[in-house]
Write a protein that binds this DNA or RNA. Structure first.
Lengths: 144, 144
DNA sequence: ATAATTGCTATTGAAATGATAGTAATAAAT
DNA sequence: ATTTATTACTATCATTTCAATAGCAATTAT
């Protein structure tokens, strides 16, 4: 699971890191649905195979975009946390949601997402704040 | 080249349409670099294989996201034009550029894009305006 | 009339993805 | 204390997608 960058273009480079079929859905589950564990990611509607999930988490972790740790009182579960860089992807996820909601209705039945019609920068900052406070609640030692 | 949607999630659905390794780079070339022909797309730094380029253009065309036509005075070249829906992806491309420029420097040498530090909505509207006026110049019969 | 260009398709090999089964460690239940 | 269940994976193999290259037909340039 190497990652050679195709060019110096920032768009191409971003796609080389998170532009595969699954990474942004994992980020979605973490950032929007506050999922943290392998099991929770596996349970999404899209049905990612465990081998792929494992490989993607490893790659993102190797880039420092995701960290893997355990909670003090639980030796079994690993929890995955987004780095600040990945939390910055909130704006991208919002734009992707808005675009898909607006333009793909004729091709697929698209689930409604509440609040997507509100002010963009408010949505984004709310998503980030909620994620940070969720982490701080779960991991008391977490420093932003 | 079928496209089965993985779920009703707007994020997943958007990725199912343009979330492959190449589509957004083709959109980039069209929207930002004003490329229109197969040959021009083939000439990008990222070196897309002709078979893949062909398949992607066909898929996007089948969705009505790209149109294929010929100029009046040229029977050889096909030109590909973005639909309004795809022009709306400008915001996504800007966000992706900004994120990559800001966060991937430590992994890859990222080309500088001029003007990316300006006001987001101004950048986006400028990109769209320039694309529309380029098309109108090349295709006098084009109606927005 | 010949050569070059354009827009592809065909082919073949490599890589990624998908489905499923299985395993080790921990935790819960009896 | 022992069995059962859960979690987080890894392994395997089939299928799909991607990549590299060659080649071809139509059009255009020389």
């Amino acid at each position: 699971m190497k990652n050679n960058f195709r060019s110096g273009c920032p768009i191409a480079s971003t796609l080389d890191v998170v532009g595969d079929k699954w990474s942004l859905l994992i980020v979605r589950d973490m950032l929007l649905h506050h999922k943290m564990t392998f099991k929770e990611f596996s349970a999404s509607d899209e049905q990612i195979a465990p081998s792929i999930l494992s490989a993607r988490l490893k790659l993102l972790t190797s880039y420092g975009l995701v960290t893997k740790q355990k909670l003090a009182n639980n030796k079994k579960e690993n929890i995955y946390i987004l780095s600040d860089k990945m939390i910055e992807l909130a704006s991208l996820l919002v734009d992707i949601s808005v675009w898909g909601t607006k333009h793909l209705k004729e091709f697929n039945q698209i689930d409604k997402i509440e609040g997507l019609d509100l002010d963009r920068s408010l949505i984004i900052s709310t998503i980030k704040e909620r994620y940070y406070s969720m982490i701080q609640r779960k991991i008391p030692t977490y420093k932003k």
